[in-house]
């Protein structure tokens, strides 16, 4: 399971970098989105995986059973996903406006020379 996930994370990072280097506005956004997904998955796995062991406290006990999943990475990753989603939504709208203004998909045209 760990090996599979490690491979998945690595492959996602690889594809993200590939997209980032394409030099076009839309592949840049795609790359950034994938980069976000890869880092979220990494945080999720970073806390250590526990299969089918939810961090629930049994009735009468004061702590979850030993070997239960760590709930903190799950909370972190949820927060990170929400933030990444909001920023990606904004970036998409910005890209539409900027793409209209620059009238090209080629990132070399997005230098930001002031008029």
């Amino acid at each position: 399971m760990n090996v599979l996930l490690a491979l998945a994370i690595g492959t996602t990072f690889g594809i993200a970098v590939l997209w980032l280097l394409r030099g076009s506005l839309w592949s840049l956004l795609l790359g950034l989105a994938l980069l976000g997904h890869a880092s979220h998955l990494l945080i999720f796995v970073g806390g250590g995986l526990a299969v089918a062991a939810p961090p629930l406290v049994a009735e009468g006990a004061l702590a979850p059973a030993a070997g239960a999943a760590d709930p903190l990475p799950q909370a972190l990753v949820l927060t990170a996903i929400v933030i990444a989603f909001a920023i990606l939504a904004f970036a998409l709208v910005l890209a539409v406006c900027a793409g209209d203004a620059a009238n090209t998909d080629d990132l070399d045209a997005y230098g930001g020379e002031s008029q």
Binding site: L25, L28, L94, A98, A102, E113
Partner: peptide
Amino acid sequence: RAALTSSI
């Protein structure tokens, strides 16, 4: 235009 493109 510059403000939009440079913010990318």
